[in-house]
Design a protein around this nucleic acid. Structure first.
Lengths: 133, 133
DNA sequence: CAGCATCCCCAATGATACTG
DNA sequence: CAGTATCATTGGGGATGCTG
């Protein structure tokens, strides 16, 4: 059984190896999505079930129309979200998580839990750090 | 027992609630660190044990000195990394993960595993998507 | 060795207006 | 309703040179 450190070592070696190899690192690749401003928020919103374009916009009011369109297209391109056009008038387009997109919820959930469980300690550390200056 | 979707719903509700509340969202806060270019790479590098400044720089050659300094300071400020100055000549400074920093490795590891396990499907999806244009 | 200070650039995001 | 197109902004990050 691997402990945290050994596991981390394996990860970092793969990470470094991928970075050194030709082509971009898969971890970097995925992390870029995790880190961007809207991708994960949309994924988590869609985790509740399929939604249409403006329905998503209402659920996430802060996002601009441009970024909503763009982020959805990127998620679709990566196979995390599927897009279904209904030939009604006016048009109706539904977005939903693919199986792959759905599978991301679990590992991402661990991160959310860590964030919610650690934020108090982080903020306390920041306060201490800033007070020391 | 909660399934993925219900769990996601709870997360997203907390997320949205935090966004609506005064002050920034803890998830957003943590995600910004996860997503930035160097934080997690340094955390994973330090997971192997304490390292000095230039030792870290050699381990992660791509990072600029400026960003190494800045990222380490931010990690220290958040209480993820501790900094130990040895009064030698020339000076020697050692960085190591705190207990909090170490605790991040586990949930982050799940994400790395997902990334490594999903990258083939993602790239295949991208290829399909681009071919359809 | 372990930084700090400056200048600079570009890619990500936003604001606004228009459309099938 | 579900987008597209264009312009403006900004701050993350790199390059370089200097220092205790």
């Amino acid at each position: 059984m691997l402990d945290g450190v050994e596991t981390a070592q394996i990860y970092i070696e793969r990470w470094a190896a991928a970075a050194g190899a030709t082509g971009p690192c898969p971890v970097r690749d995925v992390l870029d999505k995790i880190g961007d401003k809207w991708s994960m928020l949309l994924v988590m919103t869609l985790a509740g079930g399929p939604k249409r374009f403006n329905e998503l916009h209402r659920a996430v009011p802060d996002i601009s129309q441009k970024m909503l369109t763009q982020t959805l297209r990127d998620l679709q391109r990566d196979g995390l979200v599927s897009r279904h056009v209904f030939d009604t008038k006016p048009p109706s387009v539904e977005y939903r998580l693919t199986r792959l997109g759905h599978s991301l919820i679990v590992p991402f959930g661990h991160l959310i839990e860590w964030a919610n469980g650690s934020i108090r300690r982080i903020e306390a550390a920041r306060k201490d750090f800033d007070a020391a200056r």
